[in-house]
């Protein structure tokens, strides 16, 4: 559903997308991950034809972008990072006016509206003004609005940022339901747990380049030992010198915590058992470990 070849884009002398090539098969949920300033949002804007690459070629759903962007946008839905619902309109008016931008007739739209309100669990709020909705409701309405043209591909830029756990769970369910129906999903997120749960395939990028690509499980297996033990507390330094350093395949110090990576965690846990002054957390390796390994731990305030 996406074919990108050698895409580059610079703003001034800063290269935000750098010779990016990738191919995303149809109908999957694809996650684009990266720290702030990695080039994710620029790439998403390219997908809708709202940013033109300096060089390279891009096809989305078979349409050449940005040349055939209007034809393409007929078939995609976009949930932006910051809600841009029309605050001059009620919930249902938002769906109607947005549908009118697609040239969808009133008769065609009418059955969709009730379906979408139900999908977004906003049936009782059809006539509410936008400002009266909670953050979670606004997100759900943004999602419903993006479906008004029955898209083949849905693009979501950080769909659950700022939502409470209940609202996030509901969005996840809705996205999974859409994927089951065969809709392609593209999403960016800073929540690795979200990417692991939703995405069939993820791409990690930084500084405009792709670092790696694959299913969350593949990436974890490729980059990280199976088990992680996080240790912190007084006496960490001496324990580390005497035990930790030798017992783990790899370790990383971040602030007051040491992360030990190992295929077999048992020797580490045994060595920790005699040290009540140390606190620790043992868990399987996850996508966040991969992300931090590939993009580094330093802050990005871009």
């Amino acid at each position: 559903m996406i074919e990108a070849k050698d895409l580059s884009k610079s703003y001034g002398d800063q290269r935000v997308v750098d010779a990016l090539s990738l191919s995303v098969p149809a109908g999957i949920c694809w996650g684009l991950l990266g720290p702030n300033g990695a080039g994710k949002t620029t790439f998403l804007r390219m997908l809708t034809g709202n940013t033109s690459p300096d060089v390279g070629s891009l096809r989305v759903l078979g349409h050449e972008v940005p040349r055939e962007a209007l034809k393409l946008r007929r078939h995609i839905g976009v949930v932006p990072q910051q809600d841009n619902l029309d605050v001059d309109f009620s919930v249902v008016e938002n769906l109607r006016s947005y549908a009118s931008y697609f040239g969808i007739s009133r008769a065609e739209l009418q059955p969709r509206v009730s379906r979408l309100l139900k999908f977004a669990a906003l049936e009782s709020r059809a006539d509410s003004s936008i400002t009266a909705l909670s953050g979670g409701m606004q997100r759900r309405l943004s999602l419903a609005r993006a479906l008004v043209n029955e898209p083949k591909l849905l693009i979501l830029d950080e769909p659950t940022t700022g939502l409470d756990p209940q609202a996030r769970q509901l969005i996840w369910q809705q996205l999974r339901a859409l994927r089951t129906r065969g809709m392609g999903l593209v999403l960016t997120t800073h929540y690795m747990e979200e990417a692991t749960r939703l995405c069939d395939q993820v791409t990690i990028m930084d500084h405009g380049r792709i670092l790696d690509n694959g299913s969350p499980q593949q990436l974890i297996a490729r980059h990280i030992e199976a088990q992680v033990v996080e240790v912190y507390g007084k006496g960490l330094d001496s324990w580390h010198g005497a035990n930790g350093e030798a017992l783990a395949e790899r370790f990383e110090q971040a602030g007051d915590t040491c992360f030990y990576y190992a295929e077999d965690e048992c020797p580490l846990l045994e060595a920790l058992s005699g040290h009540p002054e140390l606190s620790y957390l043992h868990r399987p390796a996850n996508l966040e470990d991969v992300f931090l390994r590939l993009t580094g731990r330093e802050l990005r305030d871009a």
């Binding site: 209007l70 932006p80 841009n84 029309d86 947005y98 931008y101 697609f102 040239g103 993006a146």
Partner: peptide, 14 residues
């Protein structure tokens, strides 16, 4: 402020 045009540009409008 309201980003109404940004929303429109995700649809088949230029």
């Amino acid at each position: 402020v309201q980003n109404t045009w940004e929303a429109m540009l995700a649809t088949p409008l230029e």
